[in-house]
Design a protein around this nucleic acid. Structure first.
Length: 257
DNA sequence: ATGGCGCCACATTGGCGA
């Protein structure tokens, strides 16, 4: 099972790239973030024509998440249980016995912003919810844009970013809180080259200079982690005309094991 | 040099992302 997380930064703009991605990479599951589409505007027909089932939860202008799958989806849930949030950031579904949780975690804006306090509270709610979900779903994957670079290896210039948004101690503590639930960062299951990132600023020739951050992650419970055979970033998508500022992150899991 | 780019909408400028 090849599973993908990709922040598309507007599905309306990126739909042709998504359809090309589906046709060429042949993923089994794709979790999208920042679709920026209301549900009535979601391109269901185009995605179904490409051979995928789809579940989605969106809103105008901001946020919006979706799960695409070759196999049927069941038990679709949106949002975090017991956490009131009008922002469409979470959708979950079961696919071939694997619980897939698609997340678009808050950005936080800056450390002195109300949005930062919301980000930390949001992660606390996510952790509490997943702790409960894990009691029912031994095979569970959490994929998406976490807006956290877990450690300095995930930052192009740690000195420049020190104590800033996306790398602050409190944010990294939330990421560790997810790992403490028994989830594993699939990327770090393998020896990886240095300076692998999943997001690059549109400005300042960020991608060409590889001035990026690794903030998009695929976390796996132990039964999936031990069956995981690769975890990579699809940088080619960032090289296209009118790219998203995020590249897809990809993990392959051998469910036969 | 806190700007820059890209997307969206109560649009031709401002909010937001990261």
């Amino acid at each position: 099972m090849k599973i993908v997380a990709w922040n598309v930064n507007s599905l309306k703009v990126r739909l042709p790239q998504l359809l090309d991605f589906l046709a060429t990479r042949l993923p089994d599951v794709v979790c999208l973030q920042e679709t920026k589409l209301t549900d009535e505007n979601f391109p269901v027909a185009e995605i179904e024509a490409a051979g995928y089932h789809v579940a989605y939860s969106g809103q105008k202008t901001y946020n919006g998440v979706a799960i695409l799958s070759r196999a049927p989806l069941s038990d679709v849930v949106t949002g975090i249980a017991n956490f009131n949030d009008e922002l469409k950031r979470v959708i979950a579904a079961t696919i071939e016995g694997v619980r897939i949780v698609c997340v678009y975690c808050p950005n936080g804006q800056s450390l002195d912003s109300d949005k930062y306090a919301y980000k930390l509270a949001w992660f606390d709610a996510l952790i509490a919810w997943l702790k409960d979900e894990l009691t029912r779903h031994p095979k569970l994957a959490v994929l998406g844009d976490y807006n956290i670079a877990p450690d300095d290896r995930d930052v192009h210039d740690p000195a420049m970013w020190v104590d800033g948004i996306l790398v602050s101690d409190a944010e990294r503590a939330r990421f560790q809180g997810l790992l403490a639930l028994g989830l594993q960062d699939s990327f770090r299951l393998f020896d990886q080259p240095e300076k692998i990132f999943s997001w690059w600023d549109y400005r300042m020739l960020g991608f060409r200079r590889n001035q990026g951050l690794r903030i998009d992650h695929i976390l796996l419970t132990q039964p999936l982690a031990q069956a995981c055979i690769s975890s990579t970033v699809d940088r080619e998508m960032r090289k296209l005309e009118r790219p998203s500022d995020h590249a897809p992150v990809v993990a392959e899991i051998n469910l036969a094991v």
